[in-house]
């Protein structure tokens, strides 16, 4: 029983340490790598929560299917529109065109 509690407190310590790490990392000029780094840390935190707190590591069958399906479909929902937006030839209004525009954007 104490072993199971130890996993909870160890996970908590790991999560707080990861929080400190990601906050610190945000102030390091990583350029384009900043977002992947932040998401990587968040994913590790998520793994701790899902595997230990939500006990996915001990789960079977439908639980694993539900978790896997949620993750897969989330990737589809984020990935497929990204395929479109990363390849658009024309954007309606971008920051680049805004920098050069004379009139301020219309306000309501």
């Amino acid at each position: 029983m104490s072993g199971r509690f130890r996993s909870v407190w160890l996970s908590w310590a790991a999560l707080v340490a990861l929080l400190a790490a990601t906050t610190g990392l945000a102030y390091v000029p990583l350029g384009r790598a900043a977002l992947p780094a932040a998401l990587a840390v968040a994913s590790v935190k998520a793994a701790v929560i899902v595997l230990v707190f939500m006990e996915l590591a001990r789960a079977t069958g439908l639980t694993r299917i539900a978790a896997g399906a949620g993750l897969f479909w989330l990737c589809v929902l984020l990935g497929m529109p990204a395929i479109d937006y990363l390849n658009r030839a024309a954007r309606p209004v971008t920051e680049r065109t805004l920098y050069t525009s004379v009139s301020p954007p219309p306000r309501r």
Binding site: A66, A69, L78, P81, A82, Y85, R91
Partner: peptide, 29 residues
């Protein structure tokens, strides 16, 4: 237990719609 997990998978996609909007506009701006 299974019912809650299936519900959470559904919830993931609910927040996923917002994350998709975030992704798209972060690509643009």
């Amino acid at each position: 237990h299974a019912g809650m997990w299936v519900f959470l998978a559904s919830e993931t996609l609910f927040f996923g719609g917002l994350l998709a909007a975030y992704t798209v506009y972060r690509i643009w701006y």
